[in-house]
Design a protein around this nucleic acid. Structure first.
Lengths: 204, 204
DNA sequence: GTTAACTGTGTACAAGTGTACATTTAATTC
DNA sequence: GAATTAAATGTACACTTGTACACAGTTAAC
C-alpha cells in the first residue's frame, strides 16, 4: 500500500476508534457530532469528510467492525466447546469475555439495533441474522436437535440470539458490579437451558 | 381542579404527546431538543421549564406512561385468555394490537432501554421487571408449571419479556409490511412455545 | 524535476441549541 | 375589585452544529 493510502487508513481508523470511545464513555451514537469525533481523533472537523459523508456512513462502518467481532465470537465459542459437554456455560463465558473486550462495539450494537437510523438498524439486524445462521450451522453439525429441520433450527437460533442480545444491554450496564453481573449471567444461562430443553421437545 | 392547574396539566400532556409524536415520526428521543418539543406542543421554548427540568425528566414521565400501557396490556391479555386454551397465540395477538395502538410509547421503550440516559434505562428496566412479575403471577395462578418455584417462574417470565421486547423492535419496523410482520409474529409465537416447552421440562 | 492529485488545515457562516431574565396575561386570593 | 401568584411569552446571549471554501503540505505520476 502506498504511503498516502496507509496514512489515510490510519486516520480513518482513528475516526472509527474515536466514535467507539465516545460511545463507550456513555454517549449515544445518535447524539455524537462530527466535531466531537474529529476532536477525539485529533484532526480538524472538516477532515472528517475525506473519509465519511456523515456520521451515518461511519456508523455503517462500525457495523462492519461489529461483524468481524461477532465472527470472532463464534470462532472462539467453537474452539472452546469442541470437546466439551458444557456447551452452554462455556459459550456464555466466552460471550461475557467478548462483552468486556469489545465493550464499545457491543454498546453500539445494542444502541443501534433500536435507536439507530433505519439503515444502521437494518445493517445490525443483518449481522445478527448471520450470527444466527452460524449457530444453525453448529447446532446441525453437532446434531443437538436431530428432530428439527433447518427452519426450526433457525427459529431456535434466533431465540438464542435474541436472548443474548437482550442480555447484552443488561450485562454492559452491570460491568462495574461483579455480583449483579454474575447473577445476570446465571439467569442468562438458565434461560438458554430452557430454550435447549424446549427445542428438544419441539414437535411440528 | 382549578382552571389554572387544569390548563397546566393540559400543556404538560401536550409536551408529552409532542415528544412521543416526534419519536414516532422516526426521531430518536435522545436527539430531540427542548425547542422541537415545545414547537410541536405549540408553546414557546422557555415554557418547557414550567413542566420539566430537561428532556431527561420528561423521559422519566414517558416511562410512567409506558408503565400504565404495560399494565393495560397485561389486563387485556388476562381477559382474553381466561377461558382459552390458546393462551400464547391470544396473548401475542393482543401484544401486536398494543404495538399498533401505542406505537410511540413502545418505540420509546425499545430506544430507551439501550440508548437512553442511565436513569431512563433503569426506569424502563424496572417497568419490564414489574411486567415480568405480573407474568409470574399469572403463570403461578394458572398452575402452568407446577414443578417450578417462584424464582424459576421469574426466570421463565424474564425470558418471555426479553423475547417480547426484542421482537418489538422488529415488529415496530415492520408495521408497513403486513407479510413480513405476520412472519415475524409466527416466529415469536413459535419461540414462546419453545420457552413453554422448556419450562415444563425444567428440573433443578 | 515538474506537475497533478489528495489529505489535512484554517476560516467563515448560517442555523440550531439550552437557558437566563424581563414582561405580559390570566387565574386565585383576600 | 385590588393584590398576588403563576403560566406562557419575547428577547437575548453564548455555544455548538454541519459544512462550504480557499489554502498548505505531501505523495504520486509523468
Amino acid at each position: 500500500m502506498s504511503i498516502r493510502k496507509e496514512k489515510k487508513a490510519l486516520t480513518r481508523s482513528a475516526l472509527i476508534n474515536a466514535a467507539l470511545q465516545l460511545v463507550e464513555e456513555g454517549g449515544n451514537f445518535a447524539t455524537i457530532s462530527i466535531r466531537e469525533i474529529a476532536k477525539q481523533a485529533g484532526i480538524v472537523p472538516t477532515a472528517f469528510y475525506r473519509h465519511f459523508k456523515d456520521t451515518n456512513e461511519l456508523g455503517l462502518n462500525l457495523v462492519d467492525e461489529l461483524s468481524s467481532c461477532l465472527r470472532q465470537l463464534i470462532r472462539s465459542a467453537r474452539e472452546q466447546s469442541e470437546n466439551s459437554t458444557q456447551l452452554i456455560s462455556h459459550s456464555i463465558r466466552i460471550f461475557d469475555e467478548h462483552l468486556s473486550s469489545h465493550r464499545e462495539l457491543l454498546v453500539f450494537m445494542t444502541q443501534g439495533r433500536s435507536g439507530g437510523t433505519p439503515s444502521i438498524r437494518n445493517a445490525i439486524r443483518n449481522e445478527l441474522n448471520v450470527f444466527a445462521l452460524e449457530i444453525v450451522n453448529d447446532l446441525s453439525q453437532q446434531q443437538s436437535f436431530p428432530t428439527l429441520n433447518s427452519a426450526q433450527l433457525k427459529m431456535v437460533a434466533d431465540l438464542i440470539v435474541s436472548t443474548l442480545a437482550y442480555s447484552a444491554t443488561d450485562l454492559l450496564d452491570l460491568s462495574d458490579n461483579p455480583v449483579l453481573k454474575t447473577e445476570r449471567l446465571s439467569l442468562l444461562e438458565a434461560q438458554c437451558r430452557v430454550i435447549f430443553l424446549g427445542a428438544a421437545e419441539w414437535k411440528a
